[in-house]
Design a protein around this nucleic acid. Structure first.
Lengths: 132, 132
DNA sequence: ATCTATTTACGAAAGGTTTCGTAGTTAAGA
DNA sequence: TCTTAACTACGAAACCTTTCGTAAATAGAT
């Protein structure tokens, strides 16, 4: 059982998560880059995105480097660990720590296609086999 | 594919969720009842709980009835639908709508015991069979 | 060197959540 | 009836998140 260490344990807000998703996908990006991506989904002012990213930098969610007149930002927290943390919070607060309840709720409402379901079954088989 | 209707579409806050969990479990309760339960987990003042429940009443998350000098409260939103909604939010915002990604993340970190895993497998088989 | 567009920094407003103090109401008991 | 404990109502403080306007700095173009 591996111990997962993260740079910090700050929970990102919803807006911060949006930005993190973009940075995880795109890697190093300027505020303009991120704001452009964001505006494909919803309308946000440039300085709003800037401010949020500055706050995230202060919180050490993001790192940054000057490059010419602007900054280039990068996510400092790992996608996998962050998603795991967020899921864990729901697991604890909503499903009292029961992973199976959570999974069944997730799969019970036609949320998963046939293809996804067989993927999951395969995943479960592998999981059982590797746990010697 | 059934349409799930809920009295409202308000997303409960974290504190509200704590109270909902207690009411779902205990059924009709007074503020005192809820506050006592809450204080088994963490320290909260009586008027804090009262105020939160009053706000929840205004938001129509709770119903209430006078009984003697106090009120008796009850959850107006359904446990199942609410949990589903909260999970759905995570599904969309964190896992881009992919239920299988969510499930695999949930199961990949030793969060589920062997017993739970076989429960889930059974659940998946049933799911596949009933979808004719 | 000056202008201009880009970018940053800062502050603050607006809205929401959580917390609790205080004052008033209620009803039960002395 | 009067007192008191339990309960409610209300307001406001403290804090957080999201948003954007404004001013200053930067650097490239003329």
């Amino acid at each position: 059982m591996r111990k997962t260490m993260q740079n910090n344990n700050i929970k990102p807000t919803d807006s911060e998560l949006e930005i993190l998703q973009i940075l995880w996908k795109s890697g190093y990006s300027t505020v303009k880059d991120v704001n452009d991506e964001l505006n494909k989904l919803r309308s946000v002012g440039y300085t709003t995105t800037l401010k949020t990213m500055q706050i995230m930098f202060e919180k050490k969610l993001l790192g940054r480097e000057r490059s010419g007149r602007s900054h280039t930002y990068v996510a400092l927290i790992k996608e996998n660990e962050t998603k795991n943390m967020l899921l864990d919070k729901v697991l604890q607060t909503v499903f009292a720590g029961s992973a199976s309840k959570l999974v069944m709720q997730a799969l019970g409402q036609n949320k998963a296609s046939k293809k996804e379901i067989s993927e999951i079954k395969k995943f479960l088989n592998d999981l059982e086999n590797e746990e010697v």
